[in-house]
Amino acid sequence: MCNKVKARGAPATAVHVRDIVKQVYAFAILHGEKVDNPATDMGAASIATFAPKERAVSPLEIRLTSRQIESVATYPTIRLPLRMILLTLVRKSELVEAT
């Protein structure tokens, strides 16, 4: 199943498929089913490996994006977090959970 998903050009999704299959079998085993989990012996790296990203946002791109954010017709409660993400480059979840 993972190979089919990977063959269509979605290696990250193939790894997610493996994780879901692994969880389904773990749930079944936890609830008394006597089955082997086929995903246990299959490592994520055997499905796909990913190269680290080396792309950086340039100062020009930050400046242009900042100007575009200001020109979009939206609520300030949406515009302000977008600017904060752009200036700090944090993930959305990190910003939401920040104190």
Score class of each variant (00 low, 15 high):
residue 1 M to E: 10
residue 2 C to N: 10
residue 2 C to T: 11
residue 2 C to H: 11
residue 3 N to A: 07
residue 3 N to F: 12
residue 4 K to W: 11
residue 4 K to D: 10
residue 4 K to S: 07
residue 6 K to A: 11
residue 6 K to M: 06
residue 7 A to E: 12
residue 8 R to F: 05
residue 9 G to L: 10
residue 9 G to M: 07
residue 10 A to I: 10
residue 10 A to Q: 10
residue 11 P to V: 14
residue 12 A to R: 13
residue 13 T to A: 13
residue 13 T to V: 14
residue 13 T to L: 10
residue 15 V to S: 04
residue 16 H to T: 13
residue 16 H to D: 13
residue 17 V to H: 05
residue 19 D to P: 03
residue 20 I to T: 11
residue 20 I to Q: 13
residue 20 I to C: 09
residue 20 I to A: 11
residue 21 V to F: 11
residue 21 V to D: 04
residue 21 V to G: 01
residue 24 V to M: 14
residue 24 V to I: 15
residue 25 Y to C: 04
residue 27 F to D: 14
residue 27 F to H: 14
residue 27 F to Y: 15
residue 28 A to M: 08
residue 29 I to V: 04
residue 30 L to W: 13
residue 31 H to R: 10
residue 33 E to T: 05
residue 33 E to F: 13
residue 34 K to T: 06
residue 34 K to I: 03
residue 35 V to C: 07
residue 36 D to I: 12
residue 37 N to F: 01
residue 38 P to A: 04
residue 40 T to A: 13
residue 40 T to G: 14
residue 40 T to R: 15
residue 41 D to M: 14
residue 42 M to L: 14
residue 42 M to S: 06
residue 42 M to C: 14
residue 43 G to K: 15
residue 44 A to S: 15
residue 45 A to F: 09
residue 47 I to T: 03
residue 47 I to F: 00
residue 47 I to K: 00
residue 48 A to G: 03
residue 48 A to N: 01
residue 48 A to L: 02
residue 49 T to E: 06
residue 50 F to A: 08
residue 51 A to W: 08
residue 54 E to P: 00
residue 54 E to W: 09
residue 55 R to K: 14
residue 56 A to D: 12
residue 57 V to L: 15
residue 58 S to W: 03
residue 58 S to P: 00
residue 59 P to D: 09
residue 61 E to K: 02
residue 61 E to S: 02
residue 62 I to N: 04
residue 64 L to W: 11
residue 64 L to R: 15
residue 65 T to A: 15
residue 69 I to C: 05
residue 69 I to E: 01
residue 70 E to K: 08
residue 71 S to G: 04
residue 71 S to L: 03
residue 72 V to L: 09
residue 72 V to C: 05
residue 72 V to A: 05
residue 73 A to D: 10
residue 73 A to W: 04
residue 74 T to I: 13
residue 75 Y to K: 02
residue 75 Y to T: 00
residue 76 P to E: 05
residue 77 T to I: 03
residue 78 I to L: 06
residue 81 P to C: 01
residue 82 L to D: 00
residue 82 L to C: 07
residue 84 M to H: 09
residue 85 I to D: 01
residue 86 L to F: 00
residue 88 T to F: 00
residue 88 T to M: 03
residue 88 T to V: 03
residue 89 L to N: 04
residue 90 V to W: 02
residue 91 R to P: 01
residue 93 S to M: 06
residue 93 S to D: 05
residue 94 E to H: 09
residue 94 E to N: 06
residue 95 L to V: 03
residue 95 L to K: 03
residue 96 V to S: 02
residue 96 V to P: 00
residue 96 V to W: 03
residue 97 E to V: 04
residue 97 E to D: 14
residue 97 E to L: 13
residue 98 A to V: 04
residue 99 T to L: 12
residue 99 T to Q: 12
residue 99 T to E: 09
